[in-house]
Design a protein around this nucleic acid. Structure first.
Length: 868
RNA sequence: GCCCGGGUGGUGGAAUGGUAGACACGGCAGACUCAAAAUCUGCUGCUCUUGCGAGCGUGCGAGUUCGAGUCUCGCCCCGGGCACCA
């Protein structure tokens, strides 16, 4: 038989080009890793450990591109550290309690547990398709009784340690559905289902004493040097330390028990500019006055018809109600101020009462103008006599100003100095005292919902709240519940709540509040170190594995989740569940950006998914109708705008490696990334190109015409890329690492005249360097090169320092800061030699145009600047 | 409203105060092909110029510096968080 001519003809080899089949190779390598138990983490004191953790997902039902990005990044770190010889812990679990399961139960009658565990099963399969180097043997869900049993045990330990207490606080109340609403369920002040205006209602709820740790949590931020600066700053601002004065106004003709009105101010230096006092609608004094004042109780009711979120309170129009009551100014017995109830005073902050100085606070000024109150300037800018008009004068506290009405201190001083002087005088005269205050409030953990961790307390009419006995934990959620009625199913369950008091044995009722899901996610990182221990943690395991060396997640968790975790770790230490060394559980933090996509709308305004849209003649059309499509801006992928791409489809079409590679390319990890179909295709094409090169080189026996220069060039690139990628991964610059890997690929493609040895070294290094990002393809290449041991068990390449240094370097030459030429000099050339070489360059001479250089700046290895 | 980020070619982005645009996408041209796809090679910030080259250019406006995308001040626009979404 005559072979087709094509086989003999080199140019025809392209027609028989080898293709990498991801659909075949990816499951194969995942089986190999599974059989090797490659990612199972075991304690081994002989090896350095590395704990890498990505924020665990909420089991919504399907993974989305944000998950792909988050877990691709974590997997790069995990595989990279493993290659470097670390004993890596890289676990996965589920943040499985929360409202969506109850919503699903209401909408389609599924039980929250069924819905949740079904979702987990589906998402686990999807995550497995990504080829992540996870230790699945440690998997758990926070809704597993085994997990929340330990959370209840810790709650009781913390209760005993005085870290938990009950107090009254406000919730959003839907008066029609008779249920508590989350902030996101309040839309324009109305309940999302009923449409009824929400009310603020007082409930007795459970709280963690996080505010007692405010100072400690603030100071410890200084030690979190491997956290993003912006997160540290956001946490500092959230804790909000302030120094101020707390003092009491004397109330004239006060209702009984309210002879003194305690106020807190951070600007006691403006006390002589006070024009009114204001109290929160929830202030006890307001309640006392409302008793015999229908108008005032109406006003208070109006204030309570606002949502509970700070945003809503701040944005609302500032209104007040003159109580008719007056308070005496502490520094002038003849001077009295009116007392208002105002909607912008928070009962939770300070004492729930303030004095207003309109000249130096815009909110107070607006309020004063509205109610015709006096505006008295306390200070003005140095060298200016301008008085406050419609804009309050609010300079930085560090800026020196001229005091017109100083309470104490110099005429010219900064606000900070003025505050210090004012506090000193007030303390000396017994008017009040300087106090440190924090914005941070105690953490309210009570939720009036079913799908959460039950709070293990029993309420007894004679004994009060009593902890559930240890041996009776966990307090399990009852399974026979219905969601056909609004409100908490635990409240109306016929039997679950009725128990005997552990103390007196009398009839008592279970607590029906469950815990905020932030509690569940505040300690899961510690549980991963031994997920089936019969205590919350095992001392040996936490000692070995904690802390998390690298934590990765969305910046949307920058404040609450991370702050609560820092608190809970401290609380676990105080109750004996974590060593002192683990009170800051996350040594390093990385916050990744979101995944965005263009938005598409049909002419009638319908949102269209990218899958419903196709290209025609350079424009986008709706595939089903052929009608043109309006392209909107690229925004975070969301169901409401339908701009979502299903990772499962991408993986089915191109393979997991392509999805991972694309996610890591181009965009810096901390910034948003835009998913484009073109980008995904390009990523797939590149991976094929790498495979073809590997396939070709694997068969290359010797160089066709090897030459030393070609080898040297290729080897220099190879080692420079090894060095660069290593640094880039260490610095979380995956996009830069990818760019370097493209450079190495390009260099290999152009290295046809290099020896087989040099090309093999290069392609092997490329496989090793790509392994953290595209693990399946890297294994396939590694095997194609004839390596017997899987790549997952081989190490990380090392750059040869000798190949990283260049003897000759090119230096740009500027004339008056503009680049005019370039010279080539020895790496260690003397400054004088560089200067004369620069001045001898033809284009530099032309640019100087005969003028005499006034100065020549030589920055060795960087630049030359000739100043004329 | 308050706190925190971000803004660089047609696009995603790169750049210890030192050559702005690495790398990629897209586009253009060429090779291979009957043709197309795939692949390979080259070019590609904008304006002027046949060319050599010149001017302009990192959201806007000032400033510091021999030199600013980078530092300082003042604006504009976009995004995240605001305590019961997770």
């Amino acid at each position: 038989m005559i072979a087709p001519a094509c086989f003999a003809d080199a140019s025809c080899r392209r027609n028989t080009m080898s293709r990498y089949n991801a659909a075949e190779a990816e499951p194969k390598w995942r089986r190999v890793w599974d059989e090797m138990n490659a990612f199972k983490a075991e304690r081994d004191p002989a090896k350095p450990k590395y704990y890498v953790l990505e924020m665990f997902p909420y089991p919504s039902g399907r993974i989305h591109m944000g998950h792909v990005r988050n877990y691709a990044m974590g997997d790069v770190i995990a595989r990279y550290k493993r290659a470097q010889g670390f004993n890596v812990l890289h676990p996965m679990g589920w943040d499985a309690f929360g409202m969506p399961a109850e919503n699903a139960a209401m909408e389609r009658g599924s039980h929250p547990a069924t819905w949740t565990y079904d979702n987990i099963a589906a998402m686990r399969e999807q995550l497995k398709m990504m080829g992540l180097s996870l230790d699945w043997s440690r998997e758990f869900a926070t809704c597993d009784p085994e997990y929340y049993a330990q959370q209840q045990a810790m709650f009781l330990d913390m209760y005993k340690a005085g870290l938990v207490y009950r107090k009254s606080s406000t919730v959003n109340w839907d008066p029609v559905d008779m249920t508590v609403l989350a902030n996101e369920q309040v839309i324009d002040g109305k309940g999302w289902r009923s449409g009824a205006p929400v009310e603020r209602r007082e409930l007795t709820q459970w709280f963690f004493r996080i505010s007692d740790m405010a100072g400690e949590l603030l100071e410890a931020i200084d030690g979190l040097t491997a956290w993003p600066e912006k997160v540290r700053l956001m946490q500092r601002n959230w804790i909000g330390k302030s120094r101020g004065l707390q003092f009491a106004f004397e109330v004239l003709d006060a209702p009984a028990g309210h002879e003194k009105l305690e106020v807190y101010t951070t600007r006691p230096d403006t006390l002589l500019g006070a024009s009114f006092a204001a109290i929160a609608a929830d202030h006890p004094l307001a309640g006392a006055l409302a008793g015999d004042n229908a108008e005032l109780s109406d006003f208070i009711a109006r204030c309570r018809r606002m949502g509970t979120s700070e945003e809503e309170l701040e944005k609302a129009e500032k209104i007040g109600f003159d109580t008719g009551l007056r308070v005496r100014h502490p520094f002038d017995p003849d001077w009295t101020l009116p007392v208002y109830v105002a909607n912008f005073i928070l009962m939770d902050y300070g004492t729930g009462a303030i004095f207003g100085c309109p000249a130096h606070d815009q909110r107070d000024l607006d309020f004063a103008r509205k109610y015709g109150l006096p505006v008295t300037d306390v200070y003005c800018a140095q060298g200016s006599d301008e008085r406050v008009g419609d804009e309050a004068y609010v300079p930085l506290k560090s800026e020196p100003v001229r005091y017109l009405l100083p309470l104490a201190g110099e005429e010219i001083m900064s606000g900070d100095q003025g505050v210090d002087a004012a506090i000193a005088r007030c303390e000396a005269e017994g008017v009040g005292e300087g106090v440190i205050n924090y914005r941070l409030r105690d953490w309210g953990v009570s939720r009036q919902r079913y799908w959460g961790c039950p709070i293990p307390i029993i309420h007894c009419d004679s004994c009060g709240p009593v902890p559930v006995l240890r041996e009776q934990l966990p307090v399990k959620l009852p399974e026979d519940v219905t969601f056909d009625k609004p409100g908490n199913p635990l409240d109306r369950h016929p039997t679950w709540g009725h128990v005997a008091c552990p103390d007196c044995g009398g009839a008592a009722r279970r607590e029906t509040d469950t815990m905020d899901t932030f509690a569940d996610s505040s300690w899961y990182y510690a549980r991963f170190t031994n997920p089936h221990a019969e205590t919350p943690t095992d001392p040996d395991d936490v000692a070995y594995w904690m802390n998390v060396d690298q934590y990765i997640g969305g910046v949307e968790h920058a404040i609450l989740h991370l702050l609560y975790s820092r608190f809970w770790a401290r609380a676990m230490h105080l109750t004996g569940h974590l060593p002192k060394s683990a009170i800051e559980p996350f040594d390093a933090l990385f916050t990744q950006g979101m995944v965005c996509h263009e938005t598409y709308r049909a002419s009638d305004g319908r949102w269209l998914t990218p899958a419903e849209v196709s290209d025609k003649d350079g424009a986008k059309i709706e595939t089903a109708t052929g009608a043109p499509v309006n392209i909107g801006p690229s925004v975070k992928m969301s169901k409401s705008k339908k701009n979502v791409v299903d990772p499962e489809h991408i993986i089915a079409e191109y393979g997991a490696d392509t999805a991972r590679w694309f996610m890591l390319s181009d965009s810096p990890p901390e910034r948003d990334v835009e998913w484009t179909a073109a980008g995904a295709e390009a990523a797939a094409r590149h991976l094929q190109r790498v495979w073809r090169l590997a396939d070709e080189i694997a068969d290359q026996r010797s160089a066709t015409e090897s030459n030393a220069t070609a080898d040297d060039t290729l080897r220099r690139v190879t080692h420079k890329v090894i060095d660069g990628v290593t640094q880039d991964i260490d610095g979380f610059a995956f996009n830069k690492a990818v760019a370097r890997l493209y450079e190495l690929t390009n260099a290999i493609a152009k290295s046809g005249d290099a020896s087989a040895t040099a090309r093999r070294e290069a392609i092997a290094a490329l496989a090793q360097l790509m392994a953290p990002m595209t693990p399946h393809l890297a294994e396939e290449i590694w095997a194609r090169l004839g390596e017997a041991t899987p790549l997952v068990a081989s190490g990380w390449p090392k750059a040869d320092p000798a190949l990283l240094v260049e003897d000759l370097i090119r230096l740009p030459v500027q004339v008056n800061g503009k680049k005019r030429g370039e010279i080539e000099v020895a790496k260690d050339a003397a400054k004088d030699d560089i200067e004369s070489a620069a001045l001898a360059d033809a284009s530099v001479i032309r640019a100087i145009g005969g003028a005499t250089p006034r100065k020549v700046i030589v920055v060795p290895g960087r630049i030359v600047n000739v100043v004329i």
